[in-house]
Simulated scan of single mutants.
Amino acid sequence: MVISTDPAWGDAVDQFVQEYENAIVYADIDQETVLHEGQVRVLANGWVELPTERLLSPDAVHHIDTQTG
């Protein structure tokens, strides 16, 4: 049996990653609890990556507002 060391999805997963330069990550619907402001990456599995390489769980994030400009 031959087992590859390359990921099964390869680079295809990167196509589902969304990057935002200016965003606000909220923990609640009322927008009272801000988890992060600034650059974020939303990974294909729903986790939110911060510039410090810290990850926020999809369960912790209620929504993300993106800012233009």
Rank of each mutant, 00 (worst) to 15 (best):
V13T: 15
V13C: 14
D14M: 11
D14Q: 12
Q15V: 10
Q15N: 15
Q15D: 15
F16H: 14
F16E: 15
V17M: 11
V17P: 09
Q18S: 13
Q18K: 08
E19C: 12
E19P: 08
E19K: 07
E19Q: 13
E19Y: 11
Y20Q: 04
Y20H: 09
Y20E: 09
Y20M: 05
Y20I: 07
E21N: 04
E21Q: 03
N22K: 04
A23N: 13
A23V: 01
A23D: 08
A23C: 12
A23H: 01
I24M: 06
I24Q: 02
I24L: 01
V25R: 04
V25D: 05
V25F: 00
V25E: 06
V25Y: 06
V25I: 00
Y26F: 09
Y26K: 00
A27S: 15
A27V: 06
A27T: 04
A27Q: 13
A27K: 08
D28M: 10
D28K: 08
D28C: 12
D28S: 10
I29H: 12
I29F: 10
D30G: 14
D30Y: 04
D30I: 10
Q31H: 12
Q31G: 07
Q31T: 04
E32H: 10
E32S: 12
E32Q: 15
T33C: 11
T33A: 12
V34G: 12
L35C: 12
L35T: 02
L35D: 11
L35H: 09
H36S: 04
H36Y: 12
E37V: 05
E37R: 13
G38M: 03
G38L: 05
G38Y: 05
G38V: 05
G38H: 07
Q39K: 02
Q39E: 08
Q39D: 02
Q39R: 00
V40N: 01
V40G: 00
V40Q: 00
R41I: 02
R41P: 07
V42S: 07
V42Q: 04
L43E: 01
L43G: 03
A44D: 15
A44K: 07
N45D: 15
N45L: 08
N45C: 10
N45P: 00
N45S: 11
G46E: 11
G46S: 09
G46Y: 06
W47G: 02
W47L: 09
V48G: 01
V48W: 07
V48A: 05
E49H: 01
E49W: 02
E49Y: 03
L50K: 03
L50Q: 02
L50C: 06
L50S: 04
L50P: 06
P51L: 10
P51K: 00
P51A: 11
P51E: 09
T52A: 13
T52M: 03
T52P: 05
T52V: 08
T52E: 11
T52Y: 06
E53N: 15
E53F: 14
E53L: 14
R54N: 11
L55W: 01
L56H: 04
L56D: 03
S57D: 14
S57Q: 04
P58A: 10
D59I: 08
D59Y: 09
D59T: 12
D59S: 14
D59K: 08
